[in-house]
């Protein structure tokens, strides 16, 4: 559906995107993740034909964006970082303008009504965009991307500046869209991609540092299972007992809590489920376990470790 090969963008001497390749299948929701200035927006701009690539190719549905820009752009609905709204127009006028701009062939009334229902802007349909709140403006921006029912939808940071309720709504909306469309969204909010995306592409300093299915990404980078225990009893003895359980790779005391309990951080060796043995070992000594929490490595950790790792390795190269 989307195929990007060795895409490079230089602004003068500055390399914004340094050779990115990936592909996205039909019906996939892909999260594009990276710190500010990593090259997310630049990549998306090249994909949508707003910028031209210095090297490499971007194909949408087999159509090269540089060879046949008009046909390629017809396949894409794009919500840029700042929704491109004409503030003086009403939502109705704006969406009709977009409909004409994309020379859409669908039934106008029906199509626009469907979109408004999907993104929930029917109640502001006749209002001037200038008077709408940020959340509504964002939704009008999303509506704009949906006009013409494009196969590929690209969102650049779709939830920035929204309140938590709106964020959840937009996420659900994106999930919903993913059923019938190919979606790429960029963000630097990590739980967002975890909640919404099938696949995560992490980009840093213009390069892809990870490209994994969402469910695999934890294991790929942590390799171990971490859990937090709360046990009442003498801390040092408990720690020794935990360490003696086979399959425990690492254990440490996190701190003291109420009820004279102590928190422990325990990591198992990869591929071993130690929960049962851990519980039995502690209970066998007569201590009471009052908390047991599994802590999958979260995306923040992964993100920081991946980004740092690459920094270090590139730093080492420089030193050599």
């Amino acid at each position: 559906m989307i195929k990007i090969e060795n895409l490079v963008k230089r602004f003068g001497d500055k390399v914004a995107v340094a050779g990115i390749s990936f592909s996205v299948e039909e019906g996939e929701i892909v999260g594009f993740l990276g710190p500010n200035g990593a090259g997310k927006t630049t990549t998306m701009s090249m994909l949508t034909g707003y910028l031209s690539s210095t090297e490499g190719t971007a194909e949408i549905n087999g159509i090269n964006i540089l060879d046949n820009p008009i046909e390629a752009k017809r396949q894409i609905g794009y919500l840029p970082e700042f929704p491109p709204l004409y503030l003086e127009m009403t939502v109705k006028e704006y969406l009709n303008f977009i409909y004409d701009l994309k020379s859409c062939k669908l039934n106008r009334e029906k199509h626009l009504k469907e979109i408004c229902d999907t993104v929930k802007i029917t109640d502001v349909y006749n209002r001037v965009i200038r008077n709408l709140s940020k959340g509504y403006r964002q939704r009008v921006g999303i509506a704009q991307a949906l006009v013409g029912n494009p196969k590929v939808i690209i969102f650049d940071e779709p939830t920035v500046g929204l309140d938590p309720k709106q964020i959840i709504e937009i996420r659900n909306l994106i999930k919903e869209l993913g059923k019938n469309h190919t979606v790429i969204l960029s963000t630097h909010i990590l739980p967002e991609v975890q909640a919404v995306c099938d696949r995560i592409i992490i980009i840093n300093k213009g390069k892809i540092v990870a490209n994994e299915k969402t469910e695999n990404i934890d294991e790929l980078f942590s390799g171990t299972r971490r859990m937090c225990l709360k046990v009442c009893g003498p801390a040092k003895d408990i720690l020794n007992t935990i360490r003696s359980v086979t399959g425990v790779a690492y254990a440490e005391i996190l701190g003291n809590n109420d009820l004279d309990s102590t928190s422990f951080l325990v990591e198992s060796t990869p591929g071993v489920d130690i929960r049962k043995m851990l519980f039995n070992a502690i209970v066998a000594r007569g201590w009471t376990m009052i908390g047991f929490e599994s802590m999958g490595a979260n995306l923040e950790d992964i993100f920081v470790s991946v980004v740092d790792e690459k920094d270090e390795s590139s730093g080492k190269k420089k030193k050599k």
Partner: peptide, 12 residues
């Protein structure tokens, strides 16, 4: 108004 992006990424 950054609407330029809309025109430049639309099929025109």
């Amino acid at each position: 108004a950054r609407t330029e992006q809309l025109l430049l990424t639309s099929p025109v």
